[in-house]
Protein backbone atom coordinates (compact mmCIF):
# COMPACT_ATOMS: atom_id res chain seq x y z
CA UNK A 1 0.00 0.00 0.00
CA UNK A 2 2.66 2.47 1.10
CA UNK A 3 4.67 1.38 -1.87
CA UNK A 4 1.79 2.13 -4.26
CA UNK A 5 1.43 5.54 -2.73
CA UNK A 6 5.09 6.36 -3.15
CA UNK A 7 5.11 5.08 -6.72
CA UNK A 8 2.13 7.32 -7.43
CA UNK A 9 3.91 10.21 -5.77
CA UNK A 10 6.89 9.70 -8.02
CA UNK A 11 4.63 9.75 -11.05
CA UNK A 12 2.93 12.87 -9.82
CA UNK A 13 6.30 14.55 -9.52
CA UNK A 14 7.60 13.13 -12.75
CA UNK A 15 4.83 14.32 -15.06
CA UNK A 16 5.44 18.09 -14.94
CA UNK A 17 9.19 17.58 -15.29
CA UNK A 18 8.72 15.44 -18.40
CA UNK A 19 6.24 17.96 -19.77
CA UNK A 20 8.94 20.61 -19.52
CA UNK A 21 11.33 18.43 -21.46
CA UNK A 22 9.03 18.39 -24.48
CA UNK A 23 8.39 22.10 -24.50
CA UNK A 24 10.88 22.62 -27.30
CA UNK A 25 9.38 19.82 -29.37
CA UNK A 26 5.88 21.28 -29.09
CA UNK A 27 7.11 24.75 -30.05
CA UNK A 28 9.14 23.33 -32.93
CA UNK A 29 6.40 21.24 -34.50
CA UNK A 30 3.71 23.84 -34.02
CA UNK A 31 6.12 26.41 -35.47
CA UNK A 32 6.74 24.13 -38.41
CA UNK A 33 3.01 23.87 -39.10
CA UNK A 34 2.73 27.68 -38.80
CA UNK A 35 5.54 28.04 -41.35
CA UNK A 36 3.54 25.82 -43.68
CA UNK A 37 0.33 27.79 -43.09
CA UNK A 38 2.05 31.15 -43.68
CA UNK A 39 3.64 30.03 -46.94
CA UNK A 40 0.40 28.49 -48.08
CA UNK A 41 -1.41 31.69 -47.11
CA UNK A 42 0.81 33.76 -49.41
CA UNK A 43 -0.32 31.63 -52.34
CA UNK A 44 -3.90 31.20 -51.11
CA UNK A 45 -4.46 34.94 -50.78
CA UNK A 46 -3.29 35.37 -54.37
CA UNK A 47 -5.57 32.56 -55.54
CA UNK A 48 -8.55 34.11 -53.75
CA UNK A 49 -7.78 37.52 -55.24
CA UNK A 50 -7.16 39.04 -51.78
CA UNK A 51 -3.56 39.77 -52.79
CA UNK A 52 -1.94 40.83 -56.07
CA UNK A 53 -0.35 37.91 -57.95
CA UNK A 54 3.45 38.01 -57.67
CA UNK A 55 5.18 35.16 -59.47
CA UNK A 56 8.40 35.38 -57.48
CA UNK A 57 6.65 35.44 -54.09
CA UNK A 58 4.41 32.55 -55.10
CA UNK A 59 7.40 30.52 -56.25
CA UNK A 60 9.35 31.23 -53.06
CA UNK A 61 6.41 30.19 -50.89
CA UNK A 62 5.90 26.95 -52.85
CA UNK A 63 9.63 26.17 -52.68
CA UNK A 64 9.49 26.66 -48.90
CA UNK A 65 6.59 24.23 -48.60
CA UNK A 66 8.49 21.61 -50.57
CA UNK A 67 11.59 22.18 -48.44
CA UNK A 68 9.60 21.59 -45.23
CA UNK A 69 8.02 18.49 -46.70
CA UNK A 70 11.49 17.03 -47.23
CA UNK A 71 12.25 16.98 -43.51
CA UNK A 72 11.19 14.00 -41.42
CA UNK A 73 8.54 15.21 -38.96
CA UNK A 74 8.83 12.23 -36.60
CA UNK A 75 11.80 13.75 -34.75
CA UNK A 76 9.38 16.41 -33.51
CA UNK A 77 6.96 13.79 -32.16
CA UNK A 78 8.81 11.96 -29.37
CA UNK A 79 6.92 9.20 -27.54
CA UNK A 80 4.95 10.70 -24.64
CA UNK A 81 4.22 14.08 -26.26
CA UNK A 82 0.58 13.45 -27.17
CA UNK A 83 -2.44 15.55 -26.19
CA UNK A 84 -3.28 12.86 -23.64
CA UNK A 85 0.06 13.23 -21.88
CA UNK A 86 0.56 16.98 -22.15
CA UNK A 87 -1.25 20.30 -22.14
CA UNK A 88 -0.73 22.65 -25.06
CA UNK A 89 -0.72 20.14 -27.88
CA UNK A 90 -3.40 18.75 -30.18
CA UNK A 91 -1.35 15.79 -31.37
CA UNK A 92 -3.57 12.74 -30.82
CA UNK A 93 -2.18 9.53 -29.28
CA UNK A 94 -3.16 7.68 -32.50
CA UNK A 95 -0.02 9.16 -34.11
CA UNK A 96 2.23 6.81 -32.15
CA UNK A 97 0.19 3.72 -33.10
CA UNK A 98 0.38 4.61 -36.80
CA UNK A 99 3.71 6.27 -37.51
CA UNK A 100 3.87 4.61 -40.94
CA UNK A 101 0.53 6.09 -41.88
CA UNK A 102 1.59 9.48 -40.51
CA UNK A 103 4.65 9.38 -42.76
CA UNK A 104 2.49 8.33 -45.73
CA UNK A 105 0.26 11.33 -45.11
CA UNK A 106 3.33 13.52 -44.82
CA UNK A 107 4.63 12.35 -48.19
CA UNK A 108 1.18 12.90 -49.71
CA UNK A 109 1.58 16.49 -48.53
CA UNK A 110 5.06 16.57 -50.13
CA UNK A 111 3.66 15.35 -53.43
CA UNK A 112 0.88 17.95 -53.44
CA UNK A 113 3.38 20.68 -52.53
CA UNK A 114 5.52 19.53 -55.47
CA UNK A 115 2.53 19.98 -57.77
CA UNK A 116 2.07 23.50 -56.47
CA UNK A 117 5.79 24.23 -56.91
CA UNK A 118 5.58 23.34 -60.61
CA UNK A 119 2.82 25.84 -61.43
CA UNK A 120 3.31 28.59 -58.83
CA UNK A 121 5.08 30.85 -61.33
CA UNK A 122 2.54 30.31 -64.11
CA UNK A 123 -0.01 32.97 -63.15
CA UNK A 124 -2.91 33.34 -60.74
CA UNK A 125 -5.28 30.94 -62.55
CA UNK A 126 -2.88 28.02 -62.09
CA UNK A 127 -2.85 28.36 -58.28
CA UNK A 128 -6.42 27.34 -57.37
CA UNK A 129 -6.38 23.86 -58.94
CA UNK A 130 -2.96 23.07 -57.42
CA UNK A 131 -4.03 24.28 -53.96
CA UNK A 132 -6.90 21.77 -53.79
CA UNK A 133 -4.69 18.68 -53.37
CA UNK A 134 -2.52 20.48 -50.80
CA UNK A 135 -5.59 21.30 -48.71
CA UNK A 136 -6.77 17.70 -49.00
CA UNK A 137 -3.37 16.48 -47.80
CA UNK A 138 -3.40 18.80 -44.76
CA UNK A 139 -6.98 17.83 -43.88
CA UNK A 140 -6.40 14.10 -44.30
CA UNK A 141 -3.80 14.21 -41.54
CA UNK A 142 -5.68 16.64 -39.26
CA UNK A 143 -8.78 14.48 -39.69
CA UNK A 144 -7.08 11.54 -37.98
CA UNK A 145 -4.24 12.89 -35.91
CA UNK A 146 -5.20 16.31 -34.59
CA UNK A 147 -7.81 17.11 -31.91
CA UNK A 148 -10.34 19.92 -32.43
CA UNK A 149 -9.46 23.27 -30.82
CA UNK A 150 -9.36 23.17 -27.03
Amino acid sequence: MLRTVSVLAIFALATPAVAQDFDGHLKARQGMFRIMAINLGIIGDMAKGDAEYDAEMAQTAADNLVAVSQTNPLVLFPEGSSSEALEGTRALPAIWDNTDDLLAKWSAFGEAAGGLQQVAGDGREALGPALGPVGDACSACHDEYRASNE
Binding site: A37, I38, G41, S139, H142
Partner: peptide, 8 residues
Amino acid sequence: PDFDSAGG
Protein backbone atom coordinates in the same frame (compact mmCIF):
# COMPACT_ATOMS: atom_id res chain seq x y z
CA PRO B 1 -8.39 32.76 -43.02
CA ASP B 2 -4.89 32.13 -41.62
CA PHE B 3 -4.52 29.00 -43.76
CA ASP B 4 -4.80 26.39 -41.11
CA SER B 5 -6.66 23.44 -42.58
CA ALA B 6 -9.88 21.82 -41.33
CA GLY B 7 -9.66 18.51 -39.52
CA GLY B 8 -11.84 16.21 -37.47
